[in-house]
Structures are given as C-alpha cells and as structure tokens.
C-alpha cells in the first residue's frame, strides 16, 4: 500500500512538473498576467485609492469580494470548530459551564 501511494505521488508530481513547463517564465513581462490588468492596477492604484501599497489596495478594494469570502470562510471554520468540539461537553451533563 505504501509503495502504491509513493508511486501515485511521484506520478502526480511528474505530471504537475510537466504542466509547469508550459507556463511563462518567472517575472516574464510578456506573460498574460503581466500585460492585461496588472499594469492598470500598478499605474492607477495610487490615484484611485490613495494607498501606496498595491497589494492592500488590490486585496481590499479591487478584489474586495474575495476578501469578504475569505473572512466568511474563517468565520465559518470557527463556528464549525465550536459546534463540533463543544458538543461533547454538553452530553456529559455540564451544560452550564
């Protein structure tokens, strides 16, 4: 079983590495990610939002929905933890703690 999982992991890793070969080079100025939206954000971020840090303005303003979803996910995870782990205590008859 161990051997099988090792073989599976190696195969999947090889496929993934093969997939990365087709990607643009690191920091390539002509890659699609660096030609469409990034220059726009980099140029207009300061005048649009008065925020020198582009990462913050992208995260919280241009892509605000993403961060809202992220926060909701964290909130849900916390609630799930409370519900799952606190349930055991009530069954033992110490509900008032």
């Amino acid at each position: 079983m161990k051997i099988l999982s090792l073989i599976t992991a190696v195969l999947v890793g090889a496929v993934l590495i093969y997939g990365t070969l087709d990607m643009p080079k690191w920091g390539d100025p002509h890659s699609p990610a660096n030609t469409h939206v990034s220059p726009y954000y980099l140029h207009h971020s300061l005048e649009h939002t008065a925020t020198p840090n582009v990462v913050t303005s992208v995260l919280a303003d241009y892509r605000g929905y993403d961060t809202l979803g992220e926060t909701t996910v964290i909130f849900t995870a916390g609630m799930a933890c409370i519900l799952l782990l606190r349930a055991g205590r009530k069954r033992r008859g110490k509900g008032d703690v």
């Binding site: 005048e47 939002t49 008065a50 925020t51 913050t56 303005s57 919280a60």
Partner: peptide, 14 residues
Amino acid sequence: AEARSLGILGVEIG
C-alpha cells in the same frame, strides 16, 4: 480617493 482609503481601513479592522 481618500474615502476609498478609509474604506479599506474599515474593512481591514473588520
């Protein structure tokens, strides 16, 4: 523009 900056600050606090 300043209002957007302040909005970002409020969101970060949340």
